[in-house]
Each structure stands twice: as C-alpha cells, then as structure tokens.
Design a protein around this nucleic acid. Structure first.
Length: 334
DNA sequence: CTCATTTGACCGAC
DNA sequence: GTCGGTCAAATGAG
C-alpha cells in the first residue's frame, strides 16, 4: 500500500518528529532524575531534585502537546506552547482550568476542575434503586460548545434524555460504553443550545478509566472542511477516502503486530483485530497498556496537554500510548 | 442473538 | 413541589 502524506502533514512531519524525539530525550532525562531522586531518598538525604523532575515533566508534556497541536494544525495560530507553560496536575489545579481553546469551531471551557479523587458514592453501595444518585456539583466537568456533534474518540452509550426546564432542546445523557466492563465512570451530557447555527454543548464528567483502544487510538486532525471539522484517524476504521487516513494504514498494522505478541496483562481489548502484515512505518501508536501506567492518574497528563481542556479523551489516549521511534519504544517506568 | 437507543419511572437535590 | 440525573424495561437495528 502506498503511503502518501498530504502536503500539510508533510510540512509538519519533521516538526512532529522533532517534538517526539525531544519528548523521548526529556523522558530519558526524567528517568535519570527520578532514579537519582530515588537513590537520594534511599540514602536518607531527602529532598532530591524534584523541581528538576517537574521541569522535565512539563517539558515533556509541552513536547507532546506541541506535537498534537501540529497534527491538529494549530501551529500556525501560534498556539504551540512551551513545556514551561504546561503545568502538571501535581502543581495544583491544572492548566486547563482557565483555558478556552477554539478548535474546529469548538469552544471548551473548564468549569469546575476540582481535584476530587475520592468520589462520592462508593460502588459497594451502588444503586439498588432507580434514580438514586447525587447531583454532580463538585465533580470536575468540562463544557464544550461545537457546531457539530464531534466525536471525541470514546465510545459512548446513551442512557437517557431529558427535557430541561427553560431549554428549547432536550438534554441527552451518555455514559462510557465501558462503564460496567471496565468501571469507567466517564459521562457526558449533550444539549443543543442554539438553533441557527446549531450549537451543541457537551459537558463531560469524570475521567475515562477505560482503555478503549479502538476509539482511543485516534488522532485528531485538522480539516479544512468545516463539515469535517472533527475528523479523526481511526486505526480500527481507516477511512481510505481521506489521504491522511490512508497514510496511517501502516500505523494500524503496527498496532496489530504488537497485539499478536502474547500479553501477560488484560490486554484483550483489540482481540477482534487480525492482521499479519508487517510494516516499516516510523512512528507508531501502540496499545500496550503497561506503558505510562503508574500510580498517577492519567488525567494528570491529559488534563494539561489536551488542548480541549478536558480529560480522558482521544488526545490523552494518544499521549499515554507508547511511541515507537524507529523500532524503539518509548517507555517510562515510574 | 447481541447491543444500542428510547422513554417513562424513580428519587435525591434544591 | 420542581428539576435534573439515572435506571431499566421495551423496542429497534444489525
């Protein structure tokens, strides 16, 4: 199959590579810093170079964010951020808090970005009765206004629709498809708030804890067509009519190749994919769930990088996947 | 048959 | 009492 990159992508390809490679280098530095820090702690000296580690983390996040912005075509708008501009979750609040990012006619606002790790109702007391719930007032949420119903890269299942007081259109309620099989608590509400032009407000609640590889392994693309303002690369569903989609076919293959290796963990999400093709493609997304798996919530990454300003969607999914650089896997062990 | 959507009921928050 | 979020049976699509 012929790989053909669109011009806009080709022009950014080198920059993407630069950003990714820089991210790899920074990550390597971070590993060393963390190792030093660990040994320092073991030796009882305390302190360590935490500030340096944080700086590296920020730079890494910035590198990946820049990559994503390039892919998203936002570079020209001067929205490339430096690593120092990105603040990790650990530094409190998250940079997405006051962010408003206009992409593809979408406006994202982070309304309520409180860190509430401990959630309200423990699953042990989970609803025995219908309608038993607590209103979401303190859980973090993000709203996103868009003229299109944008696929955010996750699988959603509609579980309700409600006519809202003083609202012209009913509100639709969605939960993650993997709510039960993976205990993913992410939900979203979608409501049309304007008629002409139609504007849909999507409010996201909670983080995706699922690993929806089929959907998560998508890349957000900038698209010149307003109608396709939210096109994605879908590795499990390559759209061949799009020149950029076809160019990523090899990516899909590589993902499949990795699957065929025996996975010790619960890595069965893409078991339905079968492909024996090999590929020499250069930068790849892998579904290996072990990479980036740490005690830190993934939202720590996604909340700061994701230009949409919400956690756990396709962007974060892309980021937390391991990246291959010419047969080299970027892996972190924290 | 499986899975997603629809829709009325339920119930806590206000 | 009203409103909004969720549940779950019924229904539909593939």
């Amino acid at each position: 199959m012929e790989l053909s990159w669109p011009e806009s992508v080709l022009s950014n390809r080198e920059r993407v590579m630069e950003e990714l490679i820089q991210g790899r280098e920074l990550a390597s530095q971070l590993c060393r810093v963390l190792d030093d820090h660990k040994s320092t702690l073991v030796s009882g000296c305390g302190g360590g170079d935490v500030g340096s580690a944080e700086g590296l983390v920020n730079k890494i996040l910035g590198s990946f964010a820049n990559t994503l912005l390039i892919l998203n075509g936002k570079e020209a708008d001067g929205e490339i951020v430096s690593g120092d501009q990105i603040q990790g979750n650990s530094s409190g609040g998250g940079s997405a808090d006051s962010s408003s990012w206009d992409a593809n006619h979408a406006i994202i606002k982070s309304e309520d970005f409180h860190e509430e790790i401990s959630c309200k109702s423990p699953s042990t007391t989970f609803k025995d009765r219908r309608g038993s719930y607590k209103r979401r007032r303190t859980s973090h949420s993000w709203t996103r206004d868009a003229q299109d119903l944008i696929d955010d890269g996750h699988s959603w299942r509609k579980y309700g629709q409600k006519v809202i007081h003083n609202a012209k259109h009913p509100r639709n309620y969605f939960r993650c498809t993997h709510k039960f099989d993976q205990s993913c608590q992410a939900t979203k509400h979608v409501q049309q708030i304007l008629d002409d032009p139609p504007v849909f407000r999507t409010t996201y609640y909670g983080n995706h804890t699922c690993r929806d590889y089929l959907k998560a392994s998508e890349l957000v693309l900038d698209c010149t067509s307003p109608r396709e303002s939210s096109s994605y690369i879908r590795f499990g569903d390559i759209k061949q009519d799009h020149p950029f989609f076809s160019s990523f076919t090899s990516v899909k293959k590589e993902v499949v190749i990795k699957e065929e290796k025996p996975q010790p963990s619960d890595d069965h999400m893409m078991a339905s994919h079968h492909c024996n093709h090999s590929s020499s493609c250069d930068y790849i997304v892998s579904p290996n769930p072990m990479v980036f798996k740490s005690s830190c919530p993934l939202s720590g990454l996604s909340s700061t990088i994701d230009p949409y300003g919400h956690q756990g969607d396709e962007m974060s999914s892309l980021i937390v996947e391991p990246y291959y650089f010419d047969d080299e896997v970027l892996q972190y062990e924290f």
